[in-house]
Simulated scan of single mutants.
Amino acid sequence: MKITSVELNVIEMPLKDPFLTHLGAVKVREGIIIKITNSEGVTGFGEGVAFSTPWYTEETIKTSLHMLTDFLIPLLKNNPIDHPAQASQLFSSIRRNHMAKAALETALWDLYAKIHAQSLSKILGGTRTVTAAGVVVATDSTTKALRQIDQYLKEGYQRIKVKISPKLDYTFLAEIRRSHPDLPIMADANSAYTLQDIERIKALDDFNLLMIEQPLAYDDIIEHALLQKEIKTPICLDESINSYDDARKAIEFGSCKVINIKVGRVGGLYEAKRIHDYCFEKGIPVWCGGMIEFGISRAHNIALASLPGFSIPGDISSSNRFWEEDIITPEVIVQNGSIAVPTGPGIGFEINQKRLREVIQWKETFVF
């Protein structure tokens, strides 16, 4: 691939509305934008999706920068590769730090697809021309939730996910079901419960949910298997699935009936595709999760969600869901409940250079 430079940019943008969970509120989003250039001047882009604080995983923007600058970029510089899939093996000497790895690896995939003048979707084996769009409602108010749901339905979203916790679950979902008896709804608990709450979780079977996402501990597989035997609602695992092996074990133990695949959480597109392929073989539905991303990561998600096993609408919303102006052009748009899968080279979007310059907080270039 003859890489000549890797450019790191830390950017920051305020969300249009706060994103609330029981773990905290996200009002301003930092991110890492990576630009890789080869000897022919072709560029590939990736995005680091760690948060500013370690509320979702142990990674943060600062730890990702440390891993990128001190380990991952030097590894890539000293060990040239021919295909982005080789990056996964190259980076395996570094434990975890999946979001840092994914930031660099996804840029390599974009570059590789552009070098071969093919869409990233096609390079990955995608079969869909559009991907169904879902959206997240993250608020602590039933009134606000219902207002948001009504707006998202007008915009065509096919599935609604709501954030729940022991302080905001049964009555909250009952009000939503009363207003929308047939709406496809899933609930995301972000590890808010324990097995001591089993009766409380069982009660949520009343609402015919598509699934309940990560009800128990963020690193658990065993107790989720016990819970799944006791409830009718399918369990979806998110934070517990950090690798292909995690997915395999969860399915073998019966810990879940659905898996959420997030590119950043599992270390990149190569591992995400491996998980997809295994789940597809085993008949386990998967969907693409979101991380309050900017447009570059969103574009990678669209390409991933074009694979045949992504049968459930993912958290891939329009750019204007979070941002007044995104860093890609054209911006991602939901039309009739779906997002078109780009057919142009690479991720299929251009960088909005003016907007990117406006939001850059820090920048460094590494010459190979």
Rank of each mutant, 00 (worst) to 15 (best):
T127A: 10
T194W: 05
D277H: 10
Y170V: 08
V28E: 12
I241M: 10
A103V: 05
K249E: 14
I164L: 09
G48Y: 03
L75N: 13
I275W: 11
T53C: 02
E331G: 15
K229L: 06
P74C: 08
E271W: 02
L153K: 08
K114Y: 08
D277R: 13
D70I: 07
Q214M: 10
K77L: 04
L15S: 12
I347K: 11
C236Y: 00
K154W: 05
P84A: 05
T129L: 11
I328C: 07
G48T: 09
G264K: 04
S255W: 03
V367F: 11
V28N: 14
N242C: 11
I235E: 07
Q118L: 12
D238R: 00
I212V: 15
D315Q: 08
E271Y: 03
L111I: 04
Y170H: 13
G126I: 09
W287A: 02
D110A: 12
P345V: 12
V10Q: 15
D206K: 05
L209D: 08
P330R: 05
S88F: 06
K161G: 01
S92L: 02
D17N: 06
A217E: 11
L111M: 08
Y244T: 04
S319K: 11
E59W: 08
L15A: 12
I327P: 13
A225T: 04
N190K: 02
G283H: 09
I94V: 15
Y152E: 12
V162F: 01
T139V: 14
A305I: 09
V137S: 05
D277K: 04
T63M: 02
E175R: 03
K114R: 15
D110T: 05
C279H: 09
I292V: 15
W287Y: 15
K202C: 03
F71N: 05
L204Y: 02
G254N: 06
M291C: 12
I32Y: 01
V162A: 00
I32A: 09
F19D: 10
K163S: 05
N336I: 09
Q228W: 02
Q86S: 12
H98A: 06
R355Q: 15
I222H: 03
